[in-house]
């Protein structure tokens, strides 16, 4: 393993009862890399994503973040999770906190930043994702696209080493997809390490360094966006692309 390998999955297996959801998954994400994971529904993309910050436990194999294998639930794991941002399909903003407090909370209670510094940083990040003016509102008062941008700001506030996105635009009305993808594209351009599960092929072509295709719990193939979309080597990837691209 080289210094620049940020996330390493080594022979990871996960079962739900009889259902084998991740099969011998090996994946390395380097510092600054943007990896897009695509694949049919039920392929195990979410499970993979959630396993990386241990919201889902695995049955065998090792997942390391920045050289440290994921510890069991406890203080150490909490510290590690703080370094791995997560953006969910359903935003999951804290419903009883204002937009500003959503972005401040982790900084104060996990990183122990002084309140005024955390507020300044939160305001800065909210401006950066284009919702500085809504800081005092509650999440339910925002559109889906705005909520997701707050969620991205909340993740960024922790100065994470990597951010995981699990279908960040799937719950959005079509007209709001782009405002979120634009923020993500800008992040990718700024060198943030990102793992993105998405069906947005345009984003994958534009922002990804590598596309990982999963099916039935396995990584079937991975390549640069040009390589993958130009000439997918596996039959499953070909038929998957044929299906989504004819739409």
């Amino acid at each position: 393993m080289t210094q620049a390998d940020l996330i390493v999955l080594d022979q990871v297996n996960k079962r739900y009862g009889e259902h084998h959801v991740l099969r011998d998954v090996n994946l390395t994400v380097r510092q600054g890399e943007v990896v897009v994971i695509i694949g049919p529904s039920g392929a195990g993309k979410s499970t993979l994503c959630r396993a990386i910050n241990r919201l889902e436990t695995i049955d065998s194999g090792v997942i390391s973040v920045d050289g440290t294998p994921l510890p069991a639930e406890g203080r150490q794991l909490a510290r590690l999770r703080a370094e791995v941002g997560m953006v969910f399909q359903s935003f999951n903003l804290f419903a009883h906190k204002t937009v500003l407090d959503n972005v401040v909370l982790g900084q104060v209670h996990v990183l122990r930043r002084p309140k005024d510094e955390a507020v300044r940083k939160a305001q800065e990040l909210l401006d950066r994702v284009g919702i500085g003016g809504q800081a005092a509102k509650f999440p339910a008062q925002l559109s889906g696209g705005q909520q997701q941008r707050v969620a991205i700001a909340r993740a960024l506030a922790m100065d994470p080493k990597v951010i995981l996105f699990d279908e960040p635009t799937s719950a959005l009305d079509p007209e709001m997809v782009n405002e979120v993808l634009e923020v993500m594209t800008a992040l990718a351009r700024d060198g943030m390490t990102m793992v993105v599960v998405t069906h947005e092929m345009g984003f994958a072509r534009r922002a990804a360094d590598r596309v990982v295709f999963m099916a039935d719990g396995e990584i079937v193939e991975q390549d640069t966006p040009d390589g993958f979309f130009g000439a997918p080597s596996s039959e499953r990837a070909q038929s998957f692309l044929a299906k989504i691209l004819t739409h």
Binding site: N53, L55, A78, R79, L80, R81, A82, E83, V84, G85, M86, F88, N92, L93, F94, L105, G106, H109, V110, A151, R154, M158
Partner: peptide, 8 residues
Amino acid sequence: EAARSLGL
């Protein structure tokens, strides 16, 4: 889940 993923 969001809280835990922040490191709380």
